[in-house]
């Protein structure tokens, strides 16, 4: 028979979901304060990881932008057998417009073609003396939708275009398109590979850092297990800590990225002359920024959950 008076169990604090959540958040914040060094190490690692990935994305997004500008130069020009009357021209335009992949169809009259030619010869207009506007043929210039701006799609497009009655000749800078397509495929492949390796490396480093920081606190996990804490009770504050570390790391990385962008990079476009049309490098679109932030939070959370699995055996 036990002489122990049964423990007079006081009214439980932090009852209910909100109460327990508040308790765990407070516990996580206390843990961060009491283990400030290991927390700073983890946050620093996540910051660097997200910064590396975001810089890579910044470069990639801008290259995509440049390539998109370049691809707008892919244009198909169709010449006619004979001059067309306005109704004939209208029906031809609608036939061309009906071909899948067509973005915009512009008619270039003989006069306009001649004027453009004159523009190009600026300073040497004398060469055109005695030449009439008749010398150049009229044409339609067709710009393509972005999905059709690669060499295979263009070949197929041109084959259909040639079947349109009245069109005799089609030009589209075949060699340039081929080179451009090869280059872009290479860029995408290299980007994907580089991005994947970078991502794997970052995940590996962050998860190992978190593992080490949790390892350094394995005594705490052990003691909690000894005094009868459930797995959830042990893990919850660590997971919240992981999420907070991830959010802090990602937030810091994005602040640094924004700072670097406005300090150095937003004018770099001119310097690099990638794309004279744009005034500088573009910043990441909001979706990417949100994605990076969420990735940081996930890194912290998943890093913690996988590490805890090893150390919480209760």
């Amino acid at each position: 028979m036990s002489l122990n008076k049964p423990v007079k169990r006081p009214k439980l604090a932090n009852e209910g979901v909100v109460g327990r959540f508040t308790f765990f958040v407070n516990r996580a914040l206390l843990n961060i304060r009491q283990n400030i060094f290991v927390n700073l190490v983890t946050i620093g690692t996540i910051t660097l990881a997200i910064l590396i990935i975001s810089l890579f994305m910044l470069v990639f997004v801008n290259l995509e932008g440049v390539s998109n500008d370049w691809s707008k130069r892919v244009q198909v020009t169709a010449y006619f057998e004979q001059e067309l009357s306005p109704p004939e021209l209208a029906s031809l335009k609608s036939l061309v417009q009906a071909i899948p992949g067509t973005d915009r169809v512009t008619y270039v009259s003989k006069e306009e073609a001649f004027n453009r030619f004159r523009e190009r010869l600026k300073g040497q207009e004398l060469l055109l003396d005695g030449i009439t506007t008749d010398v150049l043929p009229s044409s339609v210039e067709i710009s393509l939708k972005s999905a059709s701006r690669n060499s295979d799609a263009i070949s197929a497009y041109v084959a259909r275009l040639k079947k349109v009655p009245g069109i005799t000749e089609v030009q589209y800078g075949e060699e340039w398109v081929q080179r451009y397509t090869t280059f872009m495929n290479f860029m995408r492949m290299a980007g994907l590979l580089l991005g994947s390796f970078l991502f794997l490396a970052v995940v590996f480093i962050v998860s190992n850092t978190i593992k080490l920081t949790i390892y350094s606190r394995k005594e705490e996990l052990e003691i909690l297990g000894l005094v009868g804490a459930t797995r959830f009770f042990i893990k919850a504050p660590f997971l919240i800590e992981g999420i907070l570390q991830g959010a802090a790391g990602a937030g810091l990385a994005l602040v640094i990225l924004t700072g670097c962008y406005y300090a150095f990079l937003h004018n770099a476009g001119n310097f690099l002359s990638f794309n004279p049309a744009a005034s500088g490098l573009a910043f990441l679109p909001p979706v990417h920024i949100a994605g990076l932030f969420v990735s940081g939070v996930l890194l912290g959370f998943i890093g913690s959950i996988t590490s805890l699995k090893r150390f919480v055996s209760v």
Binding site: R9, P10, K11, L12, A13, N14, L224, V227, G228, F233
Partner: peptide, 13 residues
């Protein structure tokens, strides 16, 4: 306090 926190006791108790 760890032992009692695990049991869900309030801070004052």
């Amino acid at each position: 306090a760890i032992t009692l926190e695990v049991l869900g006791w309030g801070k004052q108790d």
